[in-house]
Amino acid sequence: MSNQPVLQIENLRVSFRVHDAYYAAVDGVSLNVHKNEVLAVVGESGCGKSALALSIMGLHPPAKTKLEGKILFHGTDLLSLSVHELNKIRGKDIGMIFQDPLTALNPLMTVGRQIEEGMDFHLSLSSLEKRGRTIELLERVGIPNPNQVYHRYPHELSGGMRQRIVIAMAIACHPSLIIADEPTTALDVTIQSQIMDLLRELQQQMNTGIVLITHDLGVVAEMADRVAVMYAGEIVEMADVYTLFDRPLHPYTRSLLQSIPSAQHPKERLHVIQGIVPPLQKLPRTGCRFRSRIGWIDESEHEEQPILREVEPGHFVRCICYKNFHFPHDHIGDMKYGIS
């Protein structure tokens, strides 16, 4: 490949210690992000999206987490770096945007100071230059009266404004990669669309790669170039956004798409994925993790150890059953005895 990916994750496994045993929340994930590309990671609550994002930034508490595999950033394995070495990269070459802009900002520091703080360590600028650059950043993320807002505290700003501040912080040192963990989930729809537009605009200006974590398929469709669908710590399907929405193959992807209300067929019954995502300690560690939730599929259709295969160029699916997969015809059974 001509241009090397910005981020290359190989067989990443993130395990958390619970009562002296480790349980993998991210289990063998491999993916690439290129320059100027938005890779969306979608999946339901608890599937390991945040665990993945935090491991790239090295933000897991080391005493309680085990990280295995490789996270190559421009070829350097982030997992092999000391905290000191990592600090030279995060905040400078990798920026992060968090879900809740209220809690993500220090309540006792002016927002201007919080944006500047990262520059203190990554760029050698005079305080005047830093100030100028911060004002410029505030302007760039669409904040009116940047000179005044510079001196404001987070609680004096609205949710949308706060998220703009968080974004300004993430792009302060021109990173080549941005990790955005549910950047619009805590916001109102109109604010969400503004933030999405802003992110897209910034990405195009700076040619950054973005890992966009979300559970909202609408956000995926609008923002992503490529999509990785996660279920229970594994990637079950990965493809470019058009392929994924045109020809979703994995039963989980198809179920997800069926379960959101559609604009085209408003009043139609929604598809319900049976059962629940098992908690971390109870995840099946062998065989297919989704099996129990598509009970109507014949046992013989399953693969013993489903692996991710490239079924067409750039389209990866974990499973063989997609070939014969179908939804049950009656939905009546959906609601019966939800406890298994």
């Binding site: 609550s45 179920s255 379960s259 959101i260 019954r269 929604l270 598809h271 319900v272 959906d334 609601m335």
Partner: peptide, 15 residues
């Protein structure tokens, strides 16, 4: 709620 669970509750409310 998550999308799939959302679907469950919405269907049910209609029922």
């Amino acid at each position: 709620l998550d999308v799939s669970v959302q679907a469950q509750v919405l269907n049910f409310m209609k029922d």
